[in-house]
Amino acid sequence: MDFIQINVHCDPPFREILIAEMGELDFETFMDTEVGFEAYIQEELFSHPALQTLFNRYRKQTRIWYELKKIPKENWNEEWEKNYDPIAVGDQIYVRATFHEAKPQVPYEIIINPQMSFGTGHHETTHQLLALQLTVDHKGKKVLDVGSGTGILAIMAAKLGALSVAATDIDDWCIENALENFGLNNIEPAFVKQGTIHELRLGESYEIILANINTHVLLDEMEEYNKLLSPEGHLFLSGFYDTDKARIMEKATSLGLKEVKSTTEKNWVALVLEKVE
């Protein structure tokens, strides 16, 4: 499985808009650069005409140009290490790679080797959800991370004292990477399964469910999350733009979920909902 790297040059106000739009085209990983951002997608999912159509919609409003490069799977870590810096979430969470110096004085240190998986802590959605996890008691609770990518949110849940953590993703590469990252953090997950939440037909209930995906998937799957969520349980959602929050909340309210807290960073929203019986 090889990847396509897109190096996008654009005006700063359009960076987050284009990232959100490209997320809908199955791009998985984004890195900010001085001139715009880099985006990565599996080669078999890449549609050059779809990308050109997207950029053409915005070219009347801003300058956009881009470069394409194919990256073999085995070269991904080398590319990633050139750009990856450790992340601090306030003074409570420190996310680093194995080649970064440890910070034992930070209460929650997470070690990530993301390879090609989404969820390194750099993106605003992951960063916000990590911060929101600090606001909800995880001790003794069963946690499910849907669309887990690197497994970073499930790892955070375990470090916050969760009784058990489980993870799902549709991508075999993410499954492999999440398992590696659980091992790096000395965490034994209840399971890491491949498939959509519809396909997996999970039978257990969870006090906390985490889903950092995108608007379309969240709207399609939220009813399933709600079925798996225990009464008075908490559902963490992100991966959507502030312009989509009304649609997300309309669906959530129809299912008996109420907003507990939300944050917004660079127009990306992270949301905590509670199941009201």
Rank of each mutant, 00 (worst) to 15 (best):
Gly119Asn: 10
Gly119Pro: 13
Gly119Arg: 09
Thr120Ser: 11
Gly121Ala: 06
Gly121Cys: 08
Gly121Val: 08
Gly121Glu: 05
His123Pro: 11
Glu124Gly: 04
Glu124His: 05
Glu124Tyr: 03
Glu124Asn: 08
Glu124Trp: 02
Thr125Pro: 09
Thr125Met: 10
Thr126Gly: 11
Thr126Leu: 13
His127Asn: 08
His127Arg: 03
Gln128Phe: 05
Gln128Ile: 07
Leu130His: 04
Leu130Asp: 01
Leu130Phe: 06
Ala131Cys: 07
Ala131His: 13
Ala131Met: 11
Gln133Gly: 15
Leu134Asn: 13
Leu134His: 11
Leu134Ile: 13
Thr135His: 15
Val136Asp: 15
Val136Pro: 15
Val136Met: 15
Asp137His: 12
His138Met: 15
Lys139His: 14
Lys139Val: 15
Gly140Gln: 11
Gly140Cys: 11
Gly140Asp: 13
Lys141Gln: 14
Lys142Arg: 15
Lys142Ser: 15
Lys142Gln: 14
Lys142Asp: 15
Val143Ile: 12
Leu144Arg: 14
Leu144Ala: 12
Leu144Cys: 13
Asp145His: 14
Asp145Ser: 12
Val146Gln: 13
Gly147Val: 13
Gly147His: 14
Thr150Ser: 13
Ile152Lys: 09
Ile152Ser: 09
Ala154Gly: 15
Ile155His: 03
Ile155Lys: 06
Met156Arg: 11
Met156Ile: 09
Met156Lys: 10
Ala157Asn: 10
Ala157Trp: 12
Ala158Glu: 06
Ala158Asn: 04
Ala158Thr: 02
Lys159Glu: 08
Lys159Tyr: 08
Lys159His: 07
Leu160Val: 12
Ala162Asn: 04
Ala162His: 05
Ala162Gly: 07
Leu163His: 09
Leu163Lys: 14
Ser164Arg: 10
Ser164Gln: 13
Ser164Gly: 09
Val165Asn: 02
Asp169Gln: 05
Ile170Thr: 09
Ile170Met: 05
Ile170Cys: 06
Ile170Lys: 02
Asp171His: 01
Asp172Ser: 06
Trp173Ala: 04
Trp173Val: 05
Cys174Phe: 01
Cys174Ala: 15
Glu176Ser: 03
Glu176Leu: 04
Asn177Arg: 01
Ala178His: 01
Leu179Pro: 01
Glu180Gln: 07
Glu180His: 03
Asn181Gln: 06
Asn181Tyr: 02
Asn186Ala: 09
Asn186Pro: 00
Asn186Gln: 10
Asn186Phe: 06
Ile187Ser: 09
Ile187Pro: 00
Glu188Ser: 07
Glu188Arg: 07
Pro189Gly: 04
Pro189Gln: 05
Ala190Ile: 00
Ala190Ser: 10
Phe191Thr: 08
Val192Ser: 01
Val192Leu: 04
Lys193Pro: 03
Gln194Arg: 09
Thr196Gly: 03
Ile197Gln: 05
His198Asn: 07
His198Thr: 08
Glu199Gly: 05
Glu199Ala: 11
Leu200Ser: 06
Leu200Val: 10
Leu200Asp: 03
Leu202Asn: 08
Leu202Tyr: 06
Gly203Asp: 11
Gly203Ser: 10
Glu204Gly: 12
Glu204Pro: 01
Ser205Thr: 15
Ser205Val: 14
